[in-house]
Design a protein around this nucleic acid. Structure first.
Lengths: 102, 102
DNA sequence: GACTTGATGAAGTAGATGCTAAAATATCCC
DNA sequence: GGGATATTTTAGCATCTACTTCATCAAGTC
């Protein structure tokens, strides 16, 4: 494991991206539409994940398809799964708090 | 696992601190003498590790003794061990390069 | 109580990070 | 080639982080 991998998955946003890519291959645009931030922001996160070796890029015409790299994500799966759960819980309770606030 | 834990161990410096504390209990000062940065810097890192639940503090007179918390570090041990190895290799090759440079 | 030692707190700074908007690149289609 | 679509690159900005120095606190020693 390289030390870029760890700081790559320390970011909430990148963990969320990685979670989606762990499920299925997606285009950058498809991925961007899941988030509220701009396309370039997503592209930058993908770049970081790619350098860290956590995602793979495949070109198909004018699309670029991304997937999580099983070789590098695999060893991190236990940690990531725990984090993904914690993240979802956190998001859920945050959404609830928002709801109450209204 | 909380999300502070992951960003806590994403830092090279904090991983090094945690490596030492995983071996033996140490005072803050003892720890600080292992590094080239200032005492307060170490103290700040310990604070972050403590909030993340990765280290425990025990007071003994005017000393504060720190250890890695096995409950929280345990589940991360595989990842950390891999990283510690990579870190040491990186440090070693960096030292070599320095040597050649002279 | 004054002094020393071990440690944290507070304020400031330089550099890294995450984002945005605008520009550039690449591929497909006509 | 020229236009449309998918995506990245660049430049700039605001915020966060790791560190420093100086100040403070707490416990033990005389």
């Amino acid at each position: 494991m390289n030390h870029q991998a760890l700081s790559a998955i320390a970011s909430d946003r990148r963990r969320e991206i990685l979670r989606l890519l762990w499920q299925t291959e997606r285009t950058a645009g498809d991925l961007a539409s899941e988030f509220e931030i701009s396309w370039p922001a997503i592209s930058q996160h993908l770049g970081i994940l790619k350098v860290a070796g956590l995602v793979r890029e495949r070109r198909d015409g004018r699309h670029r398809l991304y997937t999580a790299n099983p070789e590098t994500v695999g060893p991190l799966e236990a940690v990531l799964t725990a984090m993904w759960e914690a993240d979802l819980d956190r998001l859920a309770s945050h959404a609830e708090a928002e709801e109450r606030r209204k």
